[in-house]
């Protein structure tokens, strides 16, 4: 009977599960809102993938959990999302030396060695500026959905800058731009640039080396991607499913445990 391995990433907004086989090849993945109990959601996702791939629960030799919900998840090991993110990113892009990840609650910049070992990392400080949460608040203030933000920002003609670093101040700045008649795309371009500026400061802190991989839910936002790439002066490599890299990294770590 073949062995399988699971990686679970329970983030503040979404839960992701990845299944890999005995050769370390990803067979399938699933994503859902983590909601009130990320653990229940992740367990449901796991059952669904297993059913879909015809894998029995006893064939799962190891599970590694990461993300905010990792602590309470019944797994063989829990590993921080930084280690997992680096591992997963290096899997997609073996030449990756810098990994930028912007998630719901945190943004991180990770310096990695070939094979995905972490040598240094920097994360946002306590405030939410430069995170997915910041984008969500600003999108809310402008009554657009989070998914629309990037595409709208690309349509901007005159960028409205957001200077405040505090999320609460920035929200009032967004509102006052809006009440002064500024167009939504123009304001959103400023919002994306503000997120990018915070993250480029973190990039500077660890020192940039190419190739640069961009992951996390926010990597799907074309507005932030464009602004960030311009600010750091490098192209960004984005996996097809940038949300699942940490879960994949976790699954690969589980696979590594199984091998030994």
């Amino acid at each position: 009977m073949e062995d399988f391995f699971i990686g679970v990433d329970i983030g503040s907004l979404t839960a992701k599960v990845v299944l890999v086989d005995a050769q370390g090849k990803a067979l399938g993945w699933a994503v859902a809102r983590s909601g009130y109990s990320g653990r229940d959601v992740a367990q449901r996702l796991t059952r669904e993938i297993l059913a879909e791939k015809g894998v029995k629960e006893e064939q799962i030799k190891a599970t590694v959990a990461t993300g905010y919900g990792r602590v309470t998840y019944p797994a063989e090991r829990e590993v921080s999302e930084i280690t997992c993110q680096a591992k997963g990113s290096a899997h997609f892009f073996p030449g990756a030396r810098t990994v930028i990840d912007i998630g719901g609650q945190d943004s991180k910049v990770i310096k990695v060695l070939p094979g995905g070992k972490v040598i240094d990392f920097a994360m946002n400080d306590k405030c939410a500026a430069g995170t997915g949460r910041f984008l969500e608040v600003m999108a809310g203030a402008l009554e657009v959905s989070l998914e629309e933000v990037g595409a709208l920002a690309l349509k901007a003609e005159e960028h409205k800058s957001i200077s405040s670093f505090c999320t609460v101040f920035a929200e009032s700045e967004v509102i006052s731009h809006a009440s002064a008649g500024a167009l939504k795309p123009d304001i959103l371009a400023g919002v994306c640039e503000s997120v990018a500026a915070r993250v480029s400061a973190l990039v500077e802190r660890v020192g940039l080396e190419s190739e640069v991989v961009f992951t996390g839910g926010v990597a799907k936002n074309v507005g932030v991607t464009k602004a960030l790439s311009e600010q750091i002066g490098y192209p960004l490599l984005i996996p097809e499913n940038p949300q699942i890299t940490a879960a994949l990294g976790a699954a690969l770590l589980a696979w590594g445990m199984g091998k030994n």
Binding site: Y68, E78, I82, T83
Partner: peptide
């Protein structure tokens, strides 16, 4: 590690864990 007071929570756990994991490299 920036802290609001002396209590650590989820945010700090991620940082600490990643940090300790990186020490084994």
């Amino acid at each position: 590690l920036e802290l609001e007071a002396s209590e650590v929570g989820g945010q700090e756990r991620t940082r600490l864990q990643a940090f300790l994991e990186s020490l084994s490299n």
